[in-house]
Design a protein around this nucleic acid. Structure first.
Length: 1075
RNA sequence: GGGCUCAUAGCUCAGUUGGCAGAGCGCGUCGCUGAUAACGACGAGGUCCCAGGUUCAAGUCCUGGUGGGCCCA
């Protein structure tokens, strides 16, 4: 029943662990679900977290949002699914398992055994899913942790089959040959969606080579490339038809070169440090000069070069035999003067633009590399060697055979595998695609949803408008088995849409597969019959699917679309999804929209919230490899989760967030601690006083102004909280809540302290307790979604066991609703004005060096408005106490006390009037100071009579000084005037001394570890007459304030504490003893 | 080259419908003392990126530019 004592020095991480245990023991989450079951639904769809590593603090931002909105909607008594998701399949997991075994390439996996390998991938996903579940619980994330979905589940995989079948039925699935970025280590193509994450500054050996022109003696095309190995597969050379070219002789050879290319200085195409470390590049002109000089023989256009035939540098190799027949100059608009030689080496098998151009000109595509990046047999001496290790050999070879003109180190941004960091090559491969003929439908779905921030929709539409066909295949092992069975005999392929369909069509291997998950290698045992040519034994293609399919079927696979359509209809479309913005427009957001459009032509969410990245305190991206990533558990144990959650929620979602000690400390100092300290204050006094919150509370009329004011502001805060959560804008609420907490702790509690200290019960004391109790409990309720731990702890102490109707957990309580009867805007306004006047008075004291401990006789105020006057009248008592003055007088016109003096601003009028300046100064001096001051105050021009001339001064030309005489300290601002009486009488001085004494005694009490309620015997020993007089005159006051039962002037027995201090420079010895 | 976005105090950021430029941290000065390993007040610190425009009034709206980020080509 009684309140538990609380220490203000609370170990928040420890408290949070206690609360976790409490929730666990009381099955708090289950109770909440039970309570809201069957109510109106609020549907959330979780974007699955990659179950490949422990969580970092950057994962916690989005997961905090997810929990906050769940808790809010639970308080709104909605029924929810609480389903978390794990993304389990894909290359990132394979790479980690490979690392564990030290595998170097796909061969290692094959010889280890695909089945074993896949099982280990499954196990790894499960392992990290478990770890992430535990970490999420530590975050306070209330989910149905026993019911998380896994993208590796059968349900999910077969769901994608259904999707792909639908795509195929509509004719969108096709197999395409294309040159694409390829990772030789992973042995797989890298899709458009994955490309951008892997660009890095890379140094290559780049070369200028000559392509000798056939039938023209010693004439050659000058060609440049950064990838010498692709010269093995050169087919053509491209020029721009309307560009100018030069014919230049250098040594034995005459070259054709782009005019602009020849003359222009060349620069490494990188910036920053990479540029600094890179060698500078020579212009072609300079290269020729170094080679013994050159002579420009003529100028021509690109058109004149077209169709010239030339000899390629590797024509002697068998692999180049076909290409050899096609070597000629072709026209291409993309050739530029800004890079290279103006004549572009075209290898359609080694570059995606080359490939497109090759198609246009019906050129063969020579593909020289195998899956691992090794040269194929027809490339003779190169065969079996890796392209990456060959650059120097190839260049040496070119030199030996007299093709090399110049070599250089070239630094540029070049794609790397986003997972394993290997350099990519461009390779001609067959991959499977979904065409984007239906993009308009996806765009319509995109437009039907709400996007936060709203420009997100534009970004998504832009991506949808521009994106190429969707490559869905991966030549890997661990992932969705693409349900495509392709007939070797006739080339026909079929997409199988479900497990049942496969079973029905299986002609072999079903028994072998049955009982396994639909993954490689087991699924590959199943053969079907070709629907076109009837041949038996059609196999599944070897490829697996992109993991973005896995993550995007989930609004169907996890909500019952395939097995309980009725239930699915109740939950679809979800109200809300949230993920980090960067990257997701072309990943999850896109894939989710595409899948849902294909399935039901609807957006898979009503509202999408995107948030930024969590960066380190230097605003740099966190990476494990960089060493600046912060592991979630580490941060949770160091800072406490409530503070972290508050920091996340307080931030504008679309902006990146700098995570660091100072930032979290700021949240603690500004929010967590003031709130907690206010609570501690309440609880510890309520304990002593035996405050009973269950008695019928006093009516509003019987409460003080302070009470009604804070209660009124509280109603406003409830409204803000409700709308902020409902609109997914918790940061708006956080900002308001911080201000409220500041008002509460630094004004309400400070001004109310004495009400709590009173020894006997009175209405006022009861009102103070009741008000603070109501404010704290309601505030907790509002903040609970964001800071679920500390608010639970407070709730348990403030409410549980006191009120019979109290729910067992704060998170079972309904969200508060504002009480209009408690709202009093006029009162809030007056309090605002009052606080402003108090602040002015403090400033006056500071400026006049009148410390607040020194009582002053009088304060006079001229209010600027009626509201201000009412404020002063209403809150006079607070003013007397807060500012330590004896009397407050409201004046309508203080000008009678005010002496105005004006003075010429000589600096300004000097240049204006030159020799006349003396006369102007005189004129100013003789003018009516009050009239002029008034004009200055209004910012109006000042007319003056200067001998016979009328002149005008600017307001700034005159300096006005107002003085209220030596007796008054004054402060004036926006029409409000505050005066403080500076005359300190003997009595006032003695009172000031007494307050000093009280302060020293209180400090001593605290140093002696006395309890708040302990009584003392006090001894005050001094030789100073004034001090002694103060002790004598104000002894009662001192005794009352310090709970002294007696005041001696001699040393006392049983002294438990003693200190020597100086007051106004005079020594005083203080002793006290507990009685 | 195109799209989106950002630019406000030394730092991190607020700034609703256009209405006297703000907070926290840091810095300086002072104060307060039973919330005390706290707290408060005051001060210094600003070309609200630049240039135009609309308006009685622009950090805010419009146009153009500069610089950063993301995306596309």
């Amino acid at each position: 029943m009684a309140y538990e004592k609380v220490d203000s020095k609370t170990d928040f991480p420890a408290l949070e662990r206690e609360i976790l245990q409490f929730w666990n023991e009381t099955r708090a989450f289950e109770t909440l679900r039970e309570k809201n079951r069957g109510n109106k639904k609020w549907s959330f769809l979780d974007g699955p977290i990659t179950a490949n590593n422990p969580m970092g603090v950057h994962h916690a931002w989005g997961r905090t949002y997810k929990d906050v909105f769940h808790r809010y909607h639970a308080a709104k008594e909605h029924d929810m699914r609480y389903q978390n998701g794990f993304d389990c399949q894909g290359l990132w997991i394979e790479v980690e398992v490979e690392k564990e075994h030290g595998f170097k390439n796909k061969k290692d996996i094959e010889s280890y055994g695909v089945g074993k390998f896949v099982d280990e991938c499954k196990a790894r996903a499960q392992h990290y899913a478990d770890i992430q579940s535990e970490q999420s619980k530590r975050l306070g994330y209330w989910m149905d942790w026993n019911n998380s979905y896994y993208t590796m589940s059968e349900q999910n995989n077969y769901g994608i089959w259904a999707f792909l079948k639908k795509c195929h039925d509509e004719g969108h699935v096709y197999k395409g040959a294309d040159v694409m970025p390829w990772c030789p280590r992973c042995g797989t193509g890298i899709s458009q969606m994955e490309m951008n994450e892997g660009y890095r500054e890379t140094e290559h050996l780049s070369v200028f080579v000559r392509f000798p022109i056939i039938d023209r003696e010693n004439e050659a095309l000058l060609v440049w490339t950064t990838t010498p190995w692709t010269l093995t597969s050169n087919v053509a050379a491209a020029v721009k038809a309307d560009m100018k070219y030069l014919k230049v002789r250098c040594g034995d050879w005459t070259y054709y070169i782009g005019k602009g290319n020849f003359e222009a200085p060349r620069k490494q195409p990188v910036e920053g440090d990479a540029a600094k470390n890179a060698p500078s590049l020579m212009s072609i002109q300079a290269i020729f000069k170094n080679a013994g000089g050159f002579e420009v023989l003529g100028e021509l256009t690109g058109t004149e070069l077209i169709d010239l035939r030339y000899a390629g540098p590797f024509d002697h190799l068998e692999g180049a035999a076909e290409a050899k027949e096609h070597h000629k100059v072709i026209a291409w608009d993309m050739v530029t003067e800004s890079e290279g030689s103006g004549i572009v080496h075209i290898a359609p098998g080694c570059g995606s633009e080359d490939f497109r151009l090759g198609k246009e000109f019906s050129l063969p595509a020579v593909a020289p590399l195998d899956e691992q990046g090794n040269f194929l047999d027809p490339f003779e001496h190169l065969a079996g060697k890796n392209f990456g290790t060959l650059a120097n050999d190839i260049v040496a070879d070119l030199k030996d055979r007299d093709f090399l003109v110049h070599k250089e180190r070239y630094v540029h941004r070049y794609p790397h595998c986003w997972r394993c960091k290997e350099e990519l090559v461009y390779r001609l491969v067959d991959e499977w695609y979904i065409n984007m003929e239906w993009r308009e439908r996806i765009m319509a779905a995109t437009r039907s949803a709400q996007w936060i921030p709203d420009w997100g929709m534009e970004r998504e539409l832009d991506w949808l408008k521009n994106m190429g066909d969707w490559m869905i295949s991966k030549k890997r092992y661990w992932g969705l088995a693409l349900p495509i069975w392709e007939c070797n005999a006739c080339g026909h392929f079929d997409v199988v849409g479900s497990q049942a369909e496969l079973k029905e069509r299986a002609v072999a291997g079903w028994d072998e597969f049955d009982g396994n998950s639909p993954h490689r290698p087991w699924i590959d045992a199943v053969k079907i019959k070709c629907a076109k040519c009837g041949s038996d034994g059609v196999s599944r293609i070897k490829d697996v699917g992109t993991p973005w399919l896995d993550a995007s079927i989930v609004p169907f696979s996890t909500m019952g679309y395939f097995d309980n359509r009725e239930s699915w209809q109740e939950w679809f479309p979800p109200e809300f999804v949230v993920e980090a913005l960067p990257g997701q427009f072309r990943n999850w957001f896109y894939a989710l929209l595409a899948v849902s459009t294909m399935m039901v032509d609807k957006s898979p969410f009503k509202t999408l919230l995107g948030h930024g990245l969590v960066l380190d305190d230097k605003m740099e991206e966190m990476h494990k490899s960089k060493g600046n990533a912060i592991e979630f558990n580490e941060a949770a144990d160091k800072f406490g989760v409530d503070a972290m959650r508050w920091m996340y929620c307080n931030h504008s979602p679309e902006r990146n967030l700098a995570f660091g000690q100072t930032h979290v400390d700021e949240v603690k100092a500004k929010t967590v601690r003031p709130l907690w300290n206010t609570y501690v204050f309440f609880v510890n006094y309520a304990r002593l006083d035996g405050f009973d919150p269950t008695k019928e509370p006093l009516s509003l009329e019987r409460r003080s102004d302070l009470d009604r004011w804070i209660l009124s502001d509280l109603q406003e805060l409830i409204e803000v909280a409700d709308t902020s959560y409902a609109r997914f804008e918790p940061h708006h609420f956080c900002k308001r809540a911080e201000r409220f907490i500041d008002d509460l702790s630094n004004w309400f509690v400070r001004r109310s302290r004495r009400r709590f200290w009173k020894s006997e019960w009175s209405d006022d004391k009861r009102a103070a307790y009741e008000t603070l109790h109501e404010v704290l409990t309601t505030l907790c309720q509002l903040i609970a979604p964001i800071a679920p731990f500390m608010t639970e702890s407070m709730y348990q102490n403030l409410v549980v066991g006191k009120f019979a109707s109290a729910a067992a957990s704060i998170h079972h309580q309904p969200f508060p609703t504002p009480d209009p009867a408690k709202t009093d805007r006029a009162l809030s306004q007056r309090m605002d004005r009052f606080l402003r006047i108090v602040s002015m008075a403090r400033k006056t004291r500071t400026a006049s060096k009148l410390k607040v401990r020194q009582p002053l006789a009088e304060m006079r105020i001229q209010p600027a408005s009626d509201v201000e006057r009412e404020a002063v009248e209403q809150f006079t008592d607070h003013m007397l106490d807060e500012l330590n003055v004896k009397k407050v007088t409201v004046e309508t016109d203080l000008s009678s006390l005010c002496a105005v003096t004006i003075e010429a601003n000589k600096k300004l009028i000097g240049p204006k009037f030159g020799k006349e300046v003396g006369a102007v100064i005189k004129a100013i001096q003789s003018a009516d100071a009050v009239v002029i001051a008034d004009l200055v105050a209004k910012g109006a021009a000042i007319p003056l009579q200067l001998n016979d001339n009328a002149i005008e001064l600017e307001p700034a030309d005159v300096m006005v000084t107002k003085s209220y005489g030596d007796d008054w300290a004054a402060e004036e601002n926006a029409g409000t005037i505050v005066l403080l009486d500076k005359r300190i009488t003997h009595e006032l001085k003695l009172e000031g001394i007494a307050r000093d004494i009280v302060r020293f005694v209180q400090n001593l009490r605290k140093d002696a570890d006395l309890n708040l309620e302990d009584r003392i015997g006090l001894s005050l020993q001094s030789d100073d007459a004034e001090l002694n007089e103060a002790i004598e005159t104000c002894g009662d006051h001192i005794a009352r304030e310090t709970l002294a039962t007696s005041i001696e002037t001699n040393p006392i027995d049983g002294t438990s504490a003693r200190v020597e201090v100086k007051i106004n420079g005079k020594p005083l010895t203080i002793e006290l003893a507990r009685t």
